[in-house]
């Protein structure tokens, strides 16, 4: 890649060999430094931990209990869906049995879809797991839950 010479007949000839040299170096640098895997992210909150605040005085009428949806991932690949609170003081638990390849996330999505259509006010889900459950399974559960419920929280206690 040697440089060219300037023209003698008045025509200007741009010496592009050094430009090509620079381009070669830049392309090599970009190819080496660029990442070939595409990273994405999930936004999750950390569910509140610690002891609940003690009430100073009991109000005459108890406050409305919000509807709470919790998912628990068991180490046996089963998922427990627990729905509590609401105006009717719900306390219902649904178990999703494991399938041969692990957690049945398709059934989880279907169940969450049904719950969402029955309780449109349901906008948050708390996700927790048994200590031995792997992060990969938790992420898959969050992914499945977030297709139906807009906000997910991970329990820290």
């Amino acid at each position: 890649m040697s440089g060219g010479s300037s023209g003698t007949d008045g025509d200007f000839e741009l010496n592009i060999a050094p430009i090509v040299d620079c381009f070669t170096v830049l392309i090599a640098y970009l190819l080496v430094s660029m990442s070939f895997i595409s990273l994405g992210m999930f936004e999750v909150g950390v569910a509140a931990s610690g002891d609940p605040a003690q009430a100073v005085a009991q109000p005459e009428t108890p406050p409305a209990v919000p509807l709470t949806l919790s998912l628990t991932l068991n180490s046996s690949n089963a998922i427990s869906i627990h729905l509590t609170g609401g105006p009717t003081h719900l306390d219902q638990t649904t178990m999703i049995d494991p399938k041969s390849s692990g957690y049945d996330l398709d059934l989880l999505k279907t169940d969450l879809q049904k719950l969402r259509s029955s309780y449109p006010e349901l906008k948050e889900v708390n996700i927790t797991a048994e200590p031995a459950v792997k992060y990969k399974a938790i992420v898959k559960a969050i992914e499945a839950a977030k297709t139906e419920i807009p906000k997910a929280f991970l329990a820290s206690s």
């Binding site: 595409s38 994405g40 992210m41 999750v44 909150g45 950390v46 206690s157």
Partner: peptide, 18 residues
């Protein structure tokens, strides 16, 4: 998570291979 939450980092962004 507990350590992060106790220091005020409560909005987590879990990085995954997309």
């Amino acid at each position: 998570l507990a350590s992060a939450a106790n220091t005020g980092f409560v909005d987590l962004q879990l990085v995954v291979v997309q």
